[in-house]
């Protein structure tokens, strides 16, 4: 009887000790999460805002249903549209595309384009990032009608050497957003 009780007690202790440790860990994590949460969220917001603001040169932004509306001195001058394409070399490419508004005299024009996320080959396809190469800046000022949206030499868009598929995917995505 005593022996059985001791065994049961040891088993209980064996369960209890890891449980207490697990609760300690959980408490530690919850506490850290609590105190870091706000700063992390604001870091995330700053990071996104910085990219957005760079795209439109510091104009005011307002969230719209799909993306953002861009204002300069109170009047809307354009929009920022998110777009995703899976035509790249590997995985999906997430883009933000800033466009001017359509007016009676002008078509929609590209203000700027940023790649937010991609899994293209480092060293080759990653030249679509503005930090790596200036390739993405060539789209600024282009509109659907004044540009042949195929890669040079046939079209007007310079391709990244060695990354034709990636270049075509990004170019195609921008052309698609423009024609919408």
């Amino acid at each position: 009887m005593t022996i059985r009780m001791t065994t049961r007690l040891t088993t209980h202790m064996k369960i209890l000790k890891p449980t207490v440790l697990a609760l300690t860990c959980a408490f530690l994590l919850a506490f850290t999460h609590q105190i870091t949460q706000q700063t992390i969220q604001s870091n995330q917001r700053h990071y996104e805002e910085r990219i957005l603001r760079e795209m439109v040169n510091g104009a005011e932004l307002e969230k719209s249903i799909s993306g953002y509306n861009v204002f300069r001195k109170g009047t809307q001058v354009g929009t920022i549209e998110p777009f995703m394409t899976s035509r790249g070399y590997n995985g999906e490419i997430d883009l933000l595309i800033a466009l001017s508004l359509k007016s009676s005299t002008q078509d929609r024009k590209i203000i700027s384009v940023r790649v937010i996320h991609h899994e293209e080959t480092p060293g080759i396809g990653d030249k679509i990032e503005p930090d790596v190469s200036s390739w993405i800046h060539q789209f600024a000022g282009k509109s659907a009608r004044d540009t042949d949206w195929t890669l040079s030499p046939e079209g007007d868009i310079d391709a990244i050497s060695g990354a034709t598929i990636t270049s075509r995917a990004v170019t195609g995505a921008i052309a698609e957003v423009l024609s919408e």
Binding site: C25, L29, T32, H33, T36, I40, H46, Y47
Partner: peptide, 18 residues
């Protein structure tokens, strides 16, 4: 224990070096 410290490190990185 290892998973706890990794998560703490992950949160710290997001806190200081986003």
């Amino acid at each position: 224990v290892i998973a706890t410290f990794v998560t703490l490190a992950d949160l710290s990185l997001q806190y200081w070096f986003f």
